[in-house]
């Protein structure tokens, strides 16, 4: 696991800033900065967890890498993929092919399209049906599940469907945005295992989450962000003991506040469920 982490960089994000212009009461407009000077990088075969509280701009990081930010977003900074600058044009060509996105909820599936059909989109028309069946089998879905509409899926089926809809042969970078909330432990482990397997087969995985404990089970490195800024980039192994190996105060507090390491009761109150509050 560790030796792969040293491999060449697949994706690097340097000094990424994202802001929005918004109306504030009446006629005035202002720009709100959501992400400021964020840095992250992923190598082949590596799982990098991006951890931060809800609303810390994690999803926007994913959207900016894919080039699907909303129109009123203002972005600056540099992104490189495979050593070359990741331009809008390259993003358009790569997404869905080399870069896959695993979204967080059922809302990301078209409510009026049977899930089997959704998984077929993007495949060659002739072979699409067969490949979709293959994918469904691979992710433990039954063949007739393809005839269901998204609102008919259970939580676990939904996760598997989302995987089946995004993961394609030739995928080199997988960006999973909060793939774990609200599912029971068994399904959660399944998701984590799937992601780790994808990394072990050579892809880079960016796991965006607020759940440190789950992330640490599979991550090689952890990027901690707070209020849109990178607080620390730490090796997963640094999260041990009382967090002596962690550089930033914020990260240490996060780590100690987890119920699994109930060292510091001061933080047990607000971080008590193992999540970054």
């Amino acid at each position: 696991m560790k030796d792969k982490a040293q491999s060449e960089t697949l994706l690097s994000v340097d000094n990424l800033s994202i802001g929005f212009s918004q109306y504030i009461g009446g006629l005035k407009r202002r720009t709100i900065q959501v992400i400021v000077d964020l840095n992250a990088s992923i190598g082949h075969g590596e799982v990098v967890a991006v951890v931060g509280a809800s609303g810390s701009g994690k999803s926007l990081l994913a959207h900016s890498i894919l080039g699907i930010l909303p129109g009123n977003a203002i972005m600056s900074g540099r992104m490189a993929y495979g050593g070359e600058e990741l331009t809008a044009k390259r993003q358009a060509a790569l997404r869905g092919k080399e870069i896959a996105f695993i979204p967080q909820s059922v809302n990301f599936l078209d409510p009026l399209l049977r899930v089997g059909k959704q998984a077929r989109i993007g495949f060659d028309r002739k072979t699409a049906a067969a490949r979709q069946r293959e994918l469904f089998l691979r992710f433990g879905l039954k063949e007739k599940d393809g005839d269901l509409f998204p609102f008919e899926l259970s939580g676990g089926m939904l996760r598997r469907t989302l995987f089946a809809t995004c993961v394609r042969e030739g995928v080199k970078l997988i960006i999973a945005d909060e793939p774990t909330p609200g599912i029971h432990p068994e399904a959660l482990n399944e998701v984590l295992t799937q992601l780790r397997q994808l990394a072990d087969s050579g892809a880079g995985v960016m796991l965006i989450t607020h759940d440190i404990m789950s992330a640490l089970k599979i991550a090689d490195r952890v990027v901690v962000i707070k209020d849109g800024r990178t607080v620390e980039v730490a090796e997963a192994s640094a999260f041990e003991g009382q967090g002596e190996k962690l550089a930033a105060e914020y990260t240490r507090n996060l780590w100690r506040a987890l119920p699994e390491n109930d060292f510091d009761l001061m933080f047990a109150g607000d971080g008590g469920n193992g999540h970054v509050a």
């Binding site: 959207h63 699907i68 078209d110 995004c166």
Partner: peptide, 11 residues
């Protein structure tokens, strides 16, 4: 979000 996802899949 489902169109966002569609775009993320390269549609």
């Amino acid at each position: 979000e489902y169109v966002l996802f569609a775009k993320a899949r390269g549609e």
